[in-house]
Design a protein around this nucleic acid. Structure first.
Length: 882
RNA sequence: GGGAGUAUAGCUCAGCUGGUUCAGAGCGCCUGCCUUACAAGCAGGAGGUCACUGGUUCGAUCCCUGUUACUCCCACCA
């Protein structure tokens, strides 16, 4: 069979992925005889499309999962999607608007029908895209945070936590998103620096022509002002005690209050109080019994309390009101000011603090346990620095606002009814149960009204590792018992609070155990300029086009090569190119090997390659080198250093295997390779594919198959990952010496203009016992094109030399050599070495060093001295010989 | 305002308990090569005061002080 010069990923990838699915290799089921290895995917938004962050994240998961599977573990990677309430609802609303349908004109049921249709149509694209990447998810288990099992789990948990007294409803100041028209949690508010203005407004004292100046960034909120506050110890304002002021432009008379909350240094030291629109003002309002005037509609426009500004948008109102105040002479001055303004994570709208009735989850007891398991190492973070972030958040945690004024999500199972002039609440999983409860507790049997709100998306995500195995509805079922806790979680540090911490809480609450043992935090994928990849910047490459261009293996390698845990990943397409080149390199190694003629030694001895003697040494070396790298790789995986593990394997394959090993055993043109070496080569090559398979699933499967007797094999996926065995370090070191000799010869050829084809006679001065190339002579001869290797006691005349360690090696000097150039080089080397020796001697002359340092260190220094001295002598001789 | 982290070759990063794995890797770059596996390649090579400053030590890229620069997280200063 002839193989194409270039590796073609496309056909190979399609073929093998279909094969893997067909054979059910990704599927896992409970098997008590095997150790489980579970990973749950961070569920992407159901309507999302794959971006580079997903690529990185899922590549890492796949590497871990495939490796575990090959280690004989029962690997189970559960995929799924998140309903992403706000994001998805916003998309559906937008889609409807494009069709000319206003959400407000629809009933809840009608809207949800559209939403589910949309989900069925557009949902799950991202999971299909993951297949292109090679993700070995157990697709039979694909879940959705709003499918029946997950929906019911969420509802049950809500009821349970309510019954435990951990969930309560209350009127609080919450973060209101005026675009999505819902409350959001503290974590969903992103504070961004913004260039705004600080306005200084005059508040006249009632019945006086004196005024005080108050600074504000939000002049429109004066419509809701119900007090002005100063510091009780502020000398400037003592005279204001008990006075009242007139809100500028509004005319309302409000009291002056005095409270230590006020920062005397800021602005004028006087603060306007708008209890309805600022969290701190709200607290002060409560403290002093102030009226709370809400001036906004839910969508951020002014309501009827806004008087003449009614119906205006809050920002338009800001401008207008300043205009009007200016005209009325009520503005003292305006300054540029930089402050942080909260934006909605989902809609980017400026968050409005708003007083409303919401559901909250108490965090005190939940967070305590969650902190403990990370502190005591039951769960390990990689990198560990995120423990700090985690601790800080949990120690300062506030109750979680879990209700959202949306329709797309799990509807809160709280039911209301009126009896005896009061509103009562019952919480139950179904309306039927709620009815019973109402009857039992309150003797009520009329109609119930269900709460309109749905739950925060994260209130379903936090159960993910449990609900995927139905561990909420069926506690103690065989799946949850077997697969939980999961092994590794791979996610971004940006959702450590949203998701990681809360999953830990849910795990402790419902299974009394952690949800995972390790958390691998990936970095953020950035572009070459260090900018975050985003749609608006247009700097995010489309992952699928990258796969089309470089192959899935190429892209995977590209992502992994520069992605140490927790570090941001400056993505550059050339990395994928490197990955693609590597695939191709492996492919061509296959082409080489499969083109070899093989001869059994007893039958066709005469046609065997004459270098046979070097082959067994080569095999021996490659085996040892592989064992060494396997050990290194195992160590890397233990510490979740995936990019290092890949790089070590990459070098083993490219440098050691291709550049050295294959060159060593490669038969001369027209000759055959002995059977023994051929078999060893196939074996080594195959194991190399196993080592690379977690990183590059497709190309390794393809090559591995071509290396086997095709009728006896199933898949590389079902093979066992090789493990490190004993290797002889001294042997490997001695081989490196031989490598240096070869490099030395090649260097001389390259720099002195010697033909690469003309054989050279090599000799060396055997003065240093560390220099031991015995057994490697045939290899040196072959790769260095050397016709003879001799140990000599004297430098041969008319020769060029190079040093390997302290040993001088020689090749005959060609007549064309430029002795002047040669002399300059040697002199420079001599000068450097003399300087080096001087440093060593100085150190040895230091009495404190000789007596203070360990004997071994001093001896090393003495060795350096001897080496330098002999090198200097050698260099001087060479110079003289010129 | 609080906390954490980073600073090593042109770029991205290793360097685990201070001492020949101490100055490394990959990419890039330079110079030769279309050597019958691979130019998506082969061979060779050049690049660094280990951010700056003091200190501890016989000895510091590594430990401690301080400085500077950048990054991230948290926080209700209008």
């Amino acid at each position: 069979m002839t193989l194409a010069t270039k590796y073609d990923p496309r056909s190979v990838e399609e073929k093998w992925y279909a094969y893997w699915i067909e054979k059910g290799f990704f599927h896992s089921q409970v098997d008590k005889g095997r150790v489980p290895y579970t990973v749950v995917i961070p569920p992407p938004n159901v309507t999302g499309v794959l971006h580079m962050g997903h690529m990185l994240n899922n590549t890492i998961q796949d590497v871990l999962v495939r490796r575990a599977r090959m280690q004989g573990k029962n690997a189970c990677w559960v995929p799924g999607t998140d309903h992403a309430s706000i994001a998805t609802e916003a998309k559906v609303v937008k889609m409807l608007a494009e069709k000319g349908i206003d959400k407000k004109s629809l009933s809840r049921e009608e809207f949800l029908k559209y939403a589910w249709e949309w989900k069925e149509e557009h949902g799950g694209i991202i999971l299909k895209q993951l297949r292109r990447l090679g993700a070995s998810c157990d697709w039979d288990r694909t879940a959705f945070t709003m499918d029946d099992i997950r929906y019911e789990s969420v509802i049950r948990v809500f009821v349970d936590l309510y019954n435990k007294g951990l969930i309560y409803r209350g009127v609080r100041m919450v973060n209101w998103d005026p675009v999505a028209l819902t409350a959001v949690s503290d974590e969903e508010v992103i504070y961004k620096e913004s260039h705004s203005k600080l306005f200084y407004l005059r508040y006249y004292i009632e019945g006086s022509d004196r005024y005080i100046v108050v600074a504000t960034t939000r002049p429109e909120t004066i419509l809701g002002d119900t007090a002005v506050c100063v510091h009780p110890d502020d000398e400037r304002y003592q005279w204001l005690k008990g006075k009242k002021v007139i809100v500028p432009g509004v005319g309302r008379v409000v009291p002056i209050i005095m409270d230590e909350y006020v920062d005397r240094e800021f602005g004028t030291g006087a603060l306007k109080i708008t209890p309805a629109h600022d969290i701190n003002d709200y607290a002060l309002g409560m403290k002093y019994g102030l009226e709370s005037i809400d001036i906004f509609n839910d969508n951020g426009t002014l309501n009827e309390k806004g008087g003449q500004y009614e119906g205006m948008d809050r920002f338009a109102c800001r401008k207008q009101i300043m205009c009007d105040l200016e005209a009325a002479g009520l503005v003292e001055k305006t300054e540029d000011y930089t402050n942080k303004v909260g934006h909605s994570e989902r809609t980017d709208a400026v968050i409005e603090p708003k007083l409303s009735a919401q559901w909250f989850l108490k965090m005190d007891s939940l967070s305590k346990k969650a902190l403990e398991v990370v502190e005591n190492g039951t769960i390990r973070f990689h990198p560990a620095k995120f423990k700090n972030t985690y601790r800080h958040w949990l120690e300062n945690i506030k109750d979680w606002c879990i209700s959202r004024q949306l329709w797309w999500g799990q509807r809160i199972p709280a039911y209301y009814f009126e009896k005896d002039g009061r509103t009562h609440t019952v919480v139950a999983a179904t309306e039927e149960e709620a009815r019973q409860l109402a009857a039992e507790k309150y003797g009520y049997s009329g109609a119930l009204r269900q709460d309109d709100d749905v739950l925060d998306t994260w209130f379903s995500s936090w159960l993910w590792p449990i609900s995927l195995f139905d561990g909420i509805r069926n506690p103690g079922n065989s799946e949850i018992n077997y697969y939980y806790p999961t092994a590794d979680l791979v996610t971004g540090p940006d959702i450590i609070f949203f998701w990681v911490a809360r999953m830990i809480m849910a795990g402790e609450e419902y299974l009394k155990d952690v949800p995972f043992r390790n958390v691998y935090f990936t970095g953020i994928v950035r572009d070459k300029l260090g900018r975050k990849m985003s749609k608006s910047l247009g700097n995010s490459p489309d992952p699928i086009s990258l796969i089309d261009k470089y192959g899935a293996d190429g892209v995977r390698v590209g992502m992994l090569l520069t992605a140490p845990a927790g570090n941001d990943l400056p993505f550059d397409e050339s990395l994928c190119e490197q990955g693609r080149n590597f695939s191709n390199k492996l492919w061509n190694a296959l082409r080489l090997v499969s083109g070899w003629q093989v001869a059994d030694s007893d039958s066709q001895t005469s046609t065997l390659d004459s270098q046979l003697s070097s082959n067994s040494v080569a095999v021996q070396w490659m085996e040892q080198r592989m064992a060494q790298v396997l050990e290194e790789v195992e160590h890397c995986f233990d510490e979740y250093r995936l990019s290092e593990a890949l790089m070590a394997t990459y070098k083993l394959a490219w440098d050691d295997f291709c550049s050295w090993y294959l060159e060593m055993v490669k038969p001369a043109f027209g000759t055959a390779l002995d059977r023994e070496t051929y078999d060893a080569t196939i074996s080594i090559f195959s194991r190399l594919m196993l080592m690379l398979h977690p990183f590059m699933p497709f190309v390794t499967e393809e090559i591995w198959h071509q290396l086997q007797d095709s009728d006896t094999v199933s898949s590389i996926m079902t093979q066992h990952m090789p493990t490190s065995v004993f290797y002889d370090e001294r042997f490997l070191q001695r081989f490196d010496t031989a490598r240096e000799v070869i490099a030395g010869v090649r260097n001389i050829r390259a720099t002195r203009g010697l033909s690469p084809k003309e054989p050279l006679k090599l000799s060396y001065l055997a003065t240093d016992q560390r220099f031991d190339i015995s057994g490697f002579e045939p290899i040196i001869a072959k790769l260095g094109t050397v016709s003879s290797i001799d140990s000599v006691s004297e430098k041969p005349s008319a020769s060029l030399s190079f040093l390997v360690g302290t040993t001088e090696c020689f090749v005959p000097m060609p007549s064309t050599i430029d002795t002047g150039e040669e002399r300059r080089k040697l002199l420079a080397d001599l000068q450097y070495t003399e300087g080096f020796l001087a440093g060593v001697l100085k150190k040895l002359a230091n009495e404190k060093f000789v007596s203070g340092a360990p004997a071994a260190v001093v001896e090393k220094e003495r060795q350096k001295q001897r080496d330098a001295e002999s090198k200097i002598a050698a260099l001087k001789e060479q110079i003289a010989a010129l």
